[in-house]
Design a protein around this nucleic acid. Structure first.
Lengths: 199, 199
DNA sequence: TCCCATAGACTGAATGTTCAGTCAAGGAAT
DNA sequence: ATTCCTTGACTGAACATTCAGTCTATGGGA
C-alpha cells in the first residue's frame, strides 16, 4: 500500500522534476543549476540533494519523467487500438504530426538526447523507448500484412525505415522548419511513407 | 593581404577552437569551461577572452569551425562531380555511410545542434548547411531526371525526403545502434532510398 | 487507544571550488 | 613607436554538496 508519506514523497519529487524542466527551458543545459531550481520552488538547494542525492541523479530521473510522457501520452494509447489498419494509420498520423514532437520543448528534448550520448543510464532509457516504438510499428505492419491490407515485404526493414523517417522529421522541424512548414513537411513525409508501405 | 600577424592570429584561434572541441569531447557541454580549455593549451584563460571576447562568442565560432569540416570534407567534394548520376550515387553513398556521421564526435555534434536550438546565430549556421545540402540533392536529382536516369517526380519532395532520412539515420546511429548495426542500417536505408527514387 | 521511538522532511549556514570576465603591465613583432 | 599578444593576479558571483540540527508524521508496543 502507498502510505501517505510515500505519496507525498512521490508528489514532491515530481514537482521538483517539473521545476527542473522549467529551468532547463529558460536557462538551457549550461545555465540550469540546482540553485535556480530550488529558487523557483522556494526551497533551499539542499532539499533537492535530500531527495535526489546528486544533480546527476536528478537529471537521470528527469529524463525518465519526461520519456514517460511519451509512453503514457502516445505509446499506450496507440497500442490499445485493436484493428491493425486503424492502428497503423493512427501511428503514422502521430509520428508525423508536429504536435507529437512538441509534447516536450524542443531544446529540452535534445538536451536529454545529448545527455543520452554521455550517460549510459540515460542512453538505455532512450533505447528502451526507441525499441518499444519500433516493436509497435513492426507488430502493426505484420498484422496488416497478414490481413492483406499491405503487400508482403520485410516488416523489420519497413519499421526501421519509418522510425528513421520519424526521427529525421523530428530533427528537421526542430532545427530548421517552422510553423506551416512543419505541418507541410509532416504531411509530405507521411504520404511518401504510406506509399513506401504500399498503402 | 594576410600579414604575418593576421596569419598568426588565425592559426592561434584555430588551435584554441580545436582545444575547445577536445574539452567538449572529454567533459561535455556542462563541464566545458574556458579554464579547462586554457589549461589544455597551457595559457591563461584571459588569453581566450582576448581572442574571443566571451565564451558565447567562442562557442559560436566553434560551431562555424566544425561545420566547415563538413562543408570542406564533403559538400565541396560532392559538388565537384560533373556527371549527375555519378554525383547522385556519391551523395547517397556519403549520406548513409556511418563514417560521414563520425567526422565529428557524436556528442559534440549534438551539443552543437542543441546550441542551435537556443542561439539564433548557431541556428542560422545549421540552417545554411542544411539548405546547401538540400540544394545539392535537388539539383542533382533534377539533372538526373533531365538525363533520363530517373523517372520524373517532384524533385523538391524527394530531396526533402532523402534529407529527412539522412538526419534520422544520423540520430539513430548516434543514439541506439552501434558497430555493425550502423553499417547495416545505412545500407538498408540507402537501398530503400534508391528504390524510392526509382533507381 | 495511547505513547513513544524513529525515520524522514526540511532548513539554513557554511564548505571549498570553479566560473567567466577584468585589468594593468610586460614584451615581442612590425 | 606603436600595435597587440600574452601574462598572471584578481574579482565577485555562482556552483554542488555537506552538515548539524529542528520539526512532524507514522507505525509498533503497551
Amino acid at each position: 500500500m502507498a502510505t501517505a508519506r510515500a505519496q507525498h514523497t512521490a508528489a514532491r519529487r515530481q514537482e521538483m522534476l517539473a521545476a527542473y524542466y522549467d529551468v532547463l527551458v529558460d536557462e538551457g543545459l549550461q545555465g540550469a543549476s540546482l540553485a535556480k531550481v530550488a529558487r523557483r520552488l522556494g526551497v533551499p538547494p539542499s532539499l533537492l540533494i535530500h531527495y535526489f542525492g546528486t544533480k546527476e541523479q536528478m537529471t537521470v530521473e528527469l529524463v525518465d519523467f519526461l520519456l514517460d510522457k511519451y509512453r503514457r501520452g502516445y505509446g499506450d494509447r496507440l497500442a490499445a487500438i485493436d484493428d491493425p489498419l486503424e492502428r497503423l494509420t493512427a501511428v503514422l498520423d502521430t509520428l508525423f504530426d508536429p504536435e507529437y514532437h512538441q509534447l516536450l520543448d524542443d531544446s529540452v528534448f535534445y538536451a536529454c538526447f545529448y545527455l543520452s550520448l554521455r550517460n549510459p543510464t540515460v542512453r538505455a532509457q532512450f533505447a528502451t523507448l526507441h525499441y518499444a516504438s519500433l516493436e509497435l510499428l513492426e507488430t502493426t505492419l505484420r498484422e496488416c500484412m497478414a490481413a492483406g491490407h499491405l503487400p508482403p515485404d520485410d516488416v523489420h526493414e519497413l519499421a526501421q525505415l519509418i522510425e528513421t523517417l520519424e526521427e529525421g522529421y523530428a530533427l528537421v522541424i526542430g532545427g530548421v522548419a517552422d510553423g506551416d512548414d512543419r505541418q507541410a513537411l509532416g504531411a509530405m513525409v507521411k504520404r511518401r511513407a504510406r506509399g513506401l508501405l504500399g498503402l
